[in-house]
Computed example of a mutant assay.
Amino acid sequence: MTQTLLVGLKADQFRHPLDFQATQALKQFPGLDLMVRNLLGPVAEQFFYLNNIAASVLVGENQLPHLHNLLLDACKTLDLEPPQLYVQQHPVPNAYTFAMRGKQPFIVLHTALIDMLTPEEIQAVIAHELGHLKCEHGVYLTPLNIMILAASLLPNWGAVIAQSLQEQMLEWLRCAEFSCDRAALLATQNPRVVMSVLMKLAGGSPTLAPQLNLDAFIAQARAYDDISNSELGELLKSAQTAQLSHPVPVLRAREIDKWASSQAYQSLLQPTSIGYNTKVASKGGWRNW
């Protein structure tokens, strides 16, 4: 299978406009970046590192090498240094990233997510998480992850957080996810793979996943736009997503559907768009494990 290596790729070449706007808004909170680097960052980094070492499996050449190869291929395509990759036993399908600038970043995949995805789809998930690293989302992901963790362990702790900051950070994260979905598309260079992951996150399981109809889900995603045709529909959509950490799956699929057909995306795959793109054949095509 032929893929384009995006040598010299910059985050702003695929960053979603909403991500850019939300990041600028977060920067209006003075001292947030400094607080994360000097106070929250070191503590959180040590906590998550110990958690991974103690309760997860570190992927490498001699440990789940098929996942290691998917990571290396995605990093090569996105022109990014490989982070550590861990697999953690967990019944909830999920993946997440931790990164502080200048420190060792890592990605964690839950077993429940791996169990219902194909190798191509797993690589899309890995590339999505790499998008957080490429876009340097780590500074704001750290306090948000701490807020979510603290809220789950100490329900009353959420009242201590300034409501405006919490809402602003959730809005930022939802916007940042759109950029990371674009990174997944750039790595796989197949919008159907990315949209299939979103479909399975919305209503999949190891037994149901092979039975799902992607074309029907894409039609469902396009129909979601029709709700915005009325003021009430737009209001209900905003209320539905206000407290979510991620945009709803159908909206993310619709965004990828649109961007995949855009000139901006197509131009990134052209050999002269970045300056040093080269076409290579993936070793043996997509691996089936």
Score class of each variant (00 low, 15 high):
154 L>A: 15
158 G>N: 07
100 M>H: 05
268 L>K: 02
141 L>V: 13
200 K>G: 02
119 P>N: 10
220 Q>L: 09
197 V>I: 10
206 P>M: 02
8 G>K: 04
283 K>S: 12
220 Q>H: 12
211 Q>D: 07
171 E>W: 06
267 S>R: 06
172 W>L: 02
168 Q>S: 15
23 T>N: 07
6 L>F: 02
123 Q>T: 05
230 S>R: 04
82 P>S: 12
219 A>T: 09
285 G>K: 10
182 R>I: 05
79 D>V: 13
113 L>G: 02
199 M>C: 13
115 D>Y: 07
276 Y>S: 15
163 Q>L: 13
228 S>H: 07
221 A>M: 05
4 T>Q: 06
242 A>L: 09
170 L>A: 03
256 I>W: 00
72 L>K: 05
48 F>S: 05
241 T>I: 15
6 L>H: 01
52 N>Y: 03
16 H>L: 03
121 E>T: 03
102 G>I: 08
135 C>R: 04
277 N>P: 03
252 R>P: 05
20 F>N: 10
266 Q>N: 12
225 D>H: 12
216 A>R: 09
153 L>P: 00
274 I>S: 02
59 V>R: 01
17 P>K: 05
65 P>N: 05
57 V>P: 00
89 Q>A: 12
84 Q>F: 10
157 W>Y: 11
272 T>R: 08
236 L>D: 08
25 A>D: 12
168 Q>V: 03
274 I>A: 04
182 R>M: 06
213 N>I: 07
100 M>F: 05
260 A>K: 02
97 T>S: 09
12 D>N: 15
36 V>P: 00
228 S>M: 05
104 Q>L: 10
145 N>K: 10
217 F>G: 01
145 N>C: 11
213 N>M: 09
260 A>N: 02
210 P>G: 10
53 I>P: 00
32 L>Y: 07
285 G>T: 03
276 Y>L: 11
231 E>C: 08
230 S>W: 03
4 T>S: 07
82 P>G: 11
22 A>D: 00
196 S>G: 15
218 I>L: 14
31 G>T: 15
135 C>D: 06
11 A>P: 02
281 A>E: 08
92 V>N: 08
8 G>C: 05
103 K>G: 13
146 I>F: 08
84 Q>Y: 10
229 N>D: 12
142 T>I: 14
262 S>Q: 07
278 T>K: 08
53 I>N: 07
249 P>Q: 04
5 L>R: 07
29 F>N: 01
144 L>R: 06
229 N>H: 11
223 A>I: 09
261 S>W: 09
22 A>T: 04
227 I>H: 10
183 A>P: 03
200 K>I: 04
12 D>M: 13
149 L>V: 15
184 A>Y: 01
150 A>F: 08
277 N>S: 14
100 M>Q: 09
181 D>C: 08
253 A>G: 13
224 Y>L: 12
209 A>M: 05
31 G>M: 06
198 L>M: 15
69 N>A: 14
59 V>E: 01
44 A>T: 14
218 I>K: 01
45 E>C: 09
109 L>W: 00
156 N>H: 10
139 V>R: 06
108 V>A: 03
203 G>H: 11
257 D>C: 15
190 N>E: 15
36 V>I: 15
116 M>L: 12
192 R>H: 13
46 Q>D: 11
105 P>V: 06
180 C>V: 08
246 H>L: 10
272 T>D: 09
55 A>R: 14
60 G>L: 05
60 G>E: 06
36 V>W: 00
208 L>F: 06
64 L>R: 06
153 L>R: 13
233 G>Y: 01
259 W>G: 01
274 I>H: 04
